[in-house]
C-alpha cells in the first residue's frame, strides 16, 4: 500500500518536472523551429521543420544592419559593465569595510536608485543627453545604462566583500597598508569570481535594456539588438516577417543561454546576493 503511494508520488513528481521543462523550454524551441522555416511552411504547425533553411538568418544580415546592431549592443553593454565594475569596486570596499557616518543612508540611497522607474528619469535624461550632444550615439546609451548597472554592481559587490573574513585585511592594516593598497593587493586577487558573476549580471541587464535604447537612438545603424528586434516590421501587422524575427531572437539568445548555463551556480549566488539581502 505504502509502496504504491510512493510510486504514484514519484510518477506525479516526474510529470511535474516534465511539465516545468516543457513550459520553460518550449517557446524557445518553437522560435528555433520557426526561424528555420520560410514561406507557407511557416504557417503550418509542424514540430520538426520538414525543409529547414537558413534563409531567414542570411536575410537578417544581408537586408538589414543586424551585424551592426549586435556590435552596438556588445559595445554598449561591455562598456557599461566595465565602467560600473570599476566604480563599484572602490565604492564597495568603502561601504563594506570602513565604518563612517552616513553609510547606511548611502546604502539605502543606492538601493532606492535601483528601484527608480526608468520612465521617471526619461525627460531629464533626454535633456542631459541632448545637452552633451550624445543623442543617437552609443556613448549616450552607455551613460544612461550606468543608472541601471551601477547601483546593482555596488550593492552586489558590497555584500560579497562583507562576507570576506576580517583576518584578510587585519594583518595589512597592522602593517600600515593604505586602503588603496589593501583593496588592490589583498581584496582584488580573491574577488575574481565575484567580479565575473556581477559583471555578467550587469552585462545582461545592459544587453536587454529597451526603453532608453528605443528613446535615445534614431538611426537603424545605432540601434541595439532589442530595439532592432522590436522594430522589425512588415508592410502590415499580418505581414510581419516572423521567420526573420525568430531568427534574430535565436541569434541574441543562444550566447546568453550558453553563458548562463556554464556559469549557473555563480549566477544564482550573485542573484541572491543582490536581491535577498535587499
Amino acid at each position: 500500500m505504502i509502496g504504491a503511494r510512493r510510486l504514484f508520488g514519484r510518477i506525479f513528481f516526474y510529470i511535474l518536472i516534465a511539465v516545468i521543462i516543457v513550459y520553460t523550454v518550449f517557446p524557445f524551441y518553437w522560435a528555433i523551429v520557426s526561424s528555420l522555416k520560410t514561406g507557407t511552411s511557416l504557417f503550418t504547425v509542424e514540430f520538426i521543420p520538414r525543409h529547414p533553411t537558413f534563409e531567414n538568418y542570411v536575410a537578417l544580415f544581408k537586408e538589414q544592419p543586424f551585424a551592426y546592431n549586435i556590435l552596438n549592443s556588445l559595445i554598449v553593454a561591455a562598456s557599461a559593465t566595465i565602467i560600473s565594475l570599476f566604480l563599484a569596486l572602490t565604492a564597495a570596499y568603502a561601504l563594506s569595510r570602513i565604518r563612517f557616518r552616513g553609510r547606511s543612508a548611502m546604502l539605502f540611497g543606492i538601493l532606492s536608485v535601483s528601484m527608480f522607474p526608468q520612465i521617471a528619469v526619461l525627460s531629464g535624461m533626454f535633456e542631459l543627453i541632448r545637452l552633451l550632444g550624445l543623442y543617437d550615439t552609443l556613448i549616450g546609451l552607455v551613460l544612461c545604462y550606468l543608472i541601471l548597472t551601477l547601483p546593482f554592481t555596488v550593492w552586489v559587490l558590497t555584500s560579497f566583500m562583507r562576507e570576506l573574513p576580517r583576518e584578510l585585511e587585519e594583518a595589512a592594516i597592522v602593517d600600515g597598508a593604505k586602503p588603496w593598497r589593501i583593496l588592490t593587493r589583498v581584496f582584488l586577487p580573491v574577488m575574481g569570481p565575484a567580479l565575473a558573476a556581477t559583471g555578467l549580471l550587469a552585462f545582461i541587464v545592459a544587453w536587454n535594456e529597451f526603453l532608453f535604447a528605443l528613446t535615445f537612438t534614431l538611426s537603424n545603424e545605432h540601434r541595439t539588438v532589442p530595439v532592432a528586434i522590436a522594430l522589425i516590421t512588415g508592410a502590415s501587422a499580418y505581414e510581419l516577417p516572423w521567420g526573420r524575427i525568430m531568427a534574430a531572437s535565436v541569434i541574441v539568445t543562444v550566447p546568453l543561454i550558453l553563458l548562463v548555463l556554464i556559469l549557473q551556480r555563480r549566477i544564482v549566488s550573485g542573484l541572491t546576493a543582490g536581491a535577498v539581502k535587499g
Binding site: 529597451f210 532589442p226 522590436a230 541574441v252
Partner: peptide, 9 residues
C-alpha cells in the same frame, strides 16, 4: 534559467 536569460523584448 532559460526564460530568465532571454531578453524581455
Amino acid at each position: 534559467l532559460i526564460p530568465w536569460a532571454i531578453p524581455t523584448v
